[in-house]
């Protein structure tokens, strides 16, 4: 190795005579030739959780308190309005926790690439994994609420049966896949349109009332139902309510329509992501 110049008397071999401490031994760890998937996924999820909830269970409790508070307030107000609906409370809590997941996961998914720009401009890694793992906290909340709601249903004296709970689990998967499609598409589009999150905020604000969360679908004239079902959370809410509360499974045609919706949103989202992701780093 060439010697250091006379103008900069920096020795290349510590310990040095001028008091600089010798460097601690840094052993080389040879990285895996490709992405170390398990560690990367776990670290992204764990650090997201820590940054969001300050790494504490009490921090996570806030994520559960938000829909729970909403539920209490809405029950207090609308139970009077829909007093004739015997299953209103159960329908409301199912609608609310599904909606909370939809709104939260799509929002964090949209800004996920931008929020992780400090990583994406430094190393090559599969960017889609950043988008998908950004939904992990919302998925965790969804699972917690799903268990709580299921226990609540059983505790209320209903016994929808194993098939209903299995169908309910499938609906949650369907909703998660739809949200993943939306997140994939919006994460790359957000880099080009930086107010897309505000547009989406408006859409979800309107969408909250478009979905039959605080009102039973039956109060809307039937000719509008098809349009309401085009809003992704609606079929999942209605199907989940049918399975858990009414103990009836939707028709095969209904399931086929839901599967088609999942395919369109996930496929479309992935296609948009594939179109724009290669140049995403140029917009970070």
């Amino acid at each position: 190795m060439p010697a250091s110049s006379a103008t900069e008397p920096v020795s290349l071999t510590p310990p040095r005579a001028d008091g600089v401490t010798p460097h601690p031994r840094l052993t080389t760890i040879v990285p895996s030739p490709d992405v170390a998937w398990p560690g990367l996924v776990w670290t992204l999820v764990r650090t997201d959780f820590k940054a969001r909830y300050h790494g504490t269970a009490s921090g996570f409790a806030w994520a559960l308190l938000k829909p729970a508070t909403m539920f209490v307030v809405l029950v207090a107000v609308f139970s009077f309005v829909f007093a004739s609906e015997p299953t209103y409370r159960l329908d409301l809590i199912i609608g609310l926790f599904l909606w909370d997941f939809f709104a939260d996961a799509t929002k964090t998914g949209m800004t996920s690439l931008s929020a992780k720009s400090f990583l994406l401009t430094k190393a090559k890694l599969p960017r889609w994994i950043v988008v998908v793992t950004s939904m992990a906290n919302a998925v965790l909340t969804l699972i917690v609420f799903a268990v709580v709601v299921s226990l609540f249903i059983v505790g209320s004296g209903r016994s929808p049966g194993a098939a209903a709970f299995a169908a309910f689990a499938l609906y949650l998967v369907a909703l998660t896949l739809m949200v993943a499609g939306l997140a994939l598409a919006s994460s790359v589009l957000y880099l080009r349109y930086r107010d897309l999150n505000q547009v989406w905020d408006m859409a979800t604000q309107a969408g909250f009332f478009l979905a039959p969360i605080i009102y039973p679908l039956g109060v809307i004239p039937e000719r509008f139902h098809l349009w309401l079902f085009l809003w992704p959370p609606t079929p999942v809410m209605e199907f989940a309510r049918a399975a858990l509360v009414d103990a009836t499974l939707p028709t095969t045609r209904g399931h086929a329509c839901l599967a088609l919706m999942v395919a369109i949103l996930l496929g479309g989202g992935a296609a948009i992501y594939r179109r724009y992701a290669p140049r995403a780093a140029e917009y970070l």
């Binding site: 760890i29 990285p31 895996s32 490709d34 992405v35 560690g39 990367l40 670290t43 650090t47 190393a123």
Partner: peptide
Amino acid sequence: VYLMGTVLGLTLRGISAQ
């Protein structure tokens, strides 16, 4: 360190050791 290390391709065990 864990975040940057895993992005650079390290395993969790490797990072912990170092």
